[in-house]
Amino acid sequence: MSYHTNVIKLLFSTDDHLFRIGKAEKIHKLWKATGLLVLLSILIYCWMAYLGIGSNYISTNATEMNALTYEQSKFWFLVGRALFSVLFAMLVLFIPSLLFYLLTDIPFKKLMIMQQVVLFVLLIERLLWIPLATVNGLDWYVSPLSLGIIASYITDKSWIIFFFGAITLFQFWIIGFQVKYLTTLSQAIRKVWIWVNVIFLHLIYWVITALLAFIDTYILSGWFG
């Protein structure tokens, strides 16, 4: 049996497609879908950079720069975000797939399909950041879809706000989707351990996200200062 990768159909008809993926002996269009998702990631992050989302440091110090320096700063910021988008997509697609390949009996390509859905959902989340940032002036870590906005009322410690800001409703959905996907396709590991490993993986993601956000100002300062 063959399965033709289709992220959107899998997203909206999960049970049917999980059955077909489990029975599939060949996977088609996997790398085409991967390439399209990476391209979509680049387009979204470049659009966000073009709108100035995340360029607070550059905008704040614009008056201290001459016109040429300011335009160069915006250009390199755009290039940096494009490169980051590729790295982000590759990490989301390949690292969890490799880890779960080592932990379960699921073929690597089938795990890649799972992570394609995860990446697609994360990119939808980033699209929702755009109106929140441009219309409401909210940073990603205080999005109403995250726990960061609650944390900001409890503490003013930025790294704590960043950590809880990385925990969103989309993340909860992704955790549930990954557990369902892995338990449906794997017979080699108990469900409780799948839950533990999935949550632990996301915990690491939240910590890394908070760390990168915390040092982001210093990185931008080094690049554009």
Results as ranks from 00 to 15, higher is better:
residue 96 P to H: 01
residue 175 I to S: 04
residue 128 L to G: 07
residue 210 A to Y: 01
residue 57 Y to F: 10
residue 217 T to W: 11
residue 113 I to G: 06
residue 139 D to A: 15
residue 5 T to F: 07
residue 70 Y to D: 03
residue 218 Y to K: 14
residue 67 A to G: 10
residue 183 T to F: 06
residue 33 A to Y: 09
residue 42 I to P: 03
residue 5 T to G: 05
residue 174 I to R: 06
residue 205 Y to A: 12
residue 30 L to C: 03
residue 14 T to L: 15
residue 87 L to C: 11
residue 159 W to I: 15
residue 158 S to W: 10
residue 57 Y to M: 06
residue 174 I to N: 08
residue 131 P to A: 04
residue 116 Q to W: 05
residue 40 L to R: 06
residue 182 L to I: 10
residue 80 G to Q: 00
residue 145 L to D: 07
residue 35 G to M: 02
residue 67 A to Y: 15
residue 193 W to T: 13
residue 29 K to L: 13
residue 83 L to C: 13
residue 102 L to H: 12
residue 175 I to K: 02
residue 21 I to R: 05
residue 39 L to I: 09
residue 59 S to K: 13
residue 178 Q to V: 04
residue 44 I to M: 04
residue 82 A to Q: 01
residue 149 I to D: 04
residue 149 I to R: 05
residue 214 F to G: 14
residue 114 M to W: 05
residue 84 F to G: 11
residue 132 L to V: 02
residue 117 V to Y: 01
residue 155 T to H: 06
residue 138 L to I: 02
residue 157 K to N: 13
residue 167 I to R: 02
residue 222 G to Q: 00
residue 179 V to R: 05
residue 160 I to A: 11
residue 24 A to M: 01
residue 51 L to E: 10
residue 127 L to Y: 00
residue 125 E to P: 02
residue 168 T to Y: 06
residue 145 L to G: 05
residue 189 I to L: 13
residue 156 D to V: 10
residue 112 M to W: 07
residue 69 T to H: 12
residue 213 A to Q: 11
residue 116 Q to E: 13
residue 79 V to H: 03
residue 121 V to C: 12
residue 161 I to S: 06
residue 83 L to G: 14
residue 157 K to Q: 12
residue 112 M to A: 11
residue 11 L to T: 13
residue 88 F to L: 09
residue 46 C to R: 09
residue 54 G to R: 00
residue 221 S to G: 14
residue 48 M to T: 04
residue 166 A to I: 00
residue 14 T to Y: 08
residue 119 L to V: 04
residue 153 Y to S: 15
residue 124 I to Y: 04
residue 187 Q to E: 14
residue 111 L to R: 00
residue 158 S to N: 11
residue 121 V to S: 10
residue 3 Y to Q: 02
residue 122 L to S: 12
residue 96 P to T: 01
residue 154 I to R: 05
residue 104 T to L: 03
residue 195 W to N: 10
residue 135 V to F: 12
residue 188 A to R: 10
residue 79 V to P: 03
residue 201 L to A: 15
residue 101 Y to I: 07
residue 22 G to E: 10
residue 137 G to D: 03
residue 90 M to G: 12
residue 48 M to K: 06
residue 178 Q to N: 08
residue 49 A to L: 00
residue 212 L to H: 04
residue 102 L to Y: 12
residue 217 T to F: 12
residue 151 A to V: 00
residue 65 M to F: 06
residue 207 V to T: 09
residue 74 K to F: 01
residue 182 L to F: 03
